[in-house]
Design a protein around this nucleic acid. Structure first.
Lengths: 105, 105
DNA sequence: CTTGACACCTAGCCTGCCTAGGCCTAGGAT
DNA sequence: ATCCTAGGCCTAGGCAGGCTAGGTGTCAAG
């Protein structure tokens, strides 16, 4: 309903994968944990984001069929690492811009 | 095209009005100036936002017909001031959450 | 043998920013 | 006289994308 990620979803997912979350479910848990509960994203948000990122060649994936539970394991591509760096930069610029409008108090 | 306000548009507009931007065009200029050019919002973004905020009773307006050029002059309502305070709080929580996921470097 | 955690997927709703137009006045330039 | 630019306002509709709500299946515990 209310967009909790504020347009930063793909950056968040890239950062989670970069931080070691190798598959979709782990990304969801990592985002919840690392944000202190602020980002408790439904699967219907995260899985399509992973697919979009793969379509953009920022993530690569393969099936890991380790005995029973199948997982799609993701890793950053080189474009993905670059996009993450740029995303961090853009995020900081954006946050500064909002702060300068909204004020310090 | 690319959503430059990241879901923070109404907070930004409230903050601009609070900072003295009394009418729509002034809000646009204030956001551009105070953000160092980061928020260069089209009229088609800002005017509907002002209307939404007024519909929610966060802003009140009246026509100022000062010789020729007509302007719709806005001011924060008490609900608007409260919403601005809450919006600042929520923004800071959100920014912290993103930062904690995305990391410092 | 049912519950719940783990794990994946997607059609379509809905919100809301933006594009792309429209309208009008004032003042300077041509 | 006429055009252009800046100021000032407005809205229909495109479209992106987060989320709802449903689906599939495995595994361990009670």
């Amino acid at each position: 309903m209310t967009d909790t990620t504020g347009g930063q979803l793909e950056l968040l997912v890239l950062a989670a994968v970069d931080a070691g979350a190798s598959h979709g479910y782990a990304v969801i848990e990592a985002l919840r944990a690392r944000s202190g509960g602020a980002f408790d994203l439904p699967e219907g948000t995260v899985y399509p984001a992973l697919h979009r990122l793969e379509a953009k060649d920022l993530l690569a994936s393969h099936w890991a069929d380790g005995s029973g539970r199948r997982r799609r394991v993701y890793q950053l591509t080189s474009s993905g690492r670059r996009a993450l760096r740029e995303g961090r930069r853009d995020w900081r610029a954006f946050a500064r811009a909002v702060a300068s409008v909204v004020g310090a108090p």
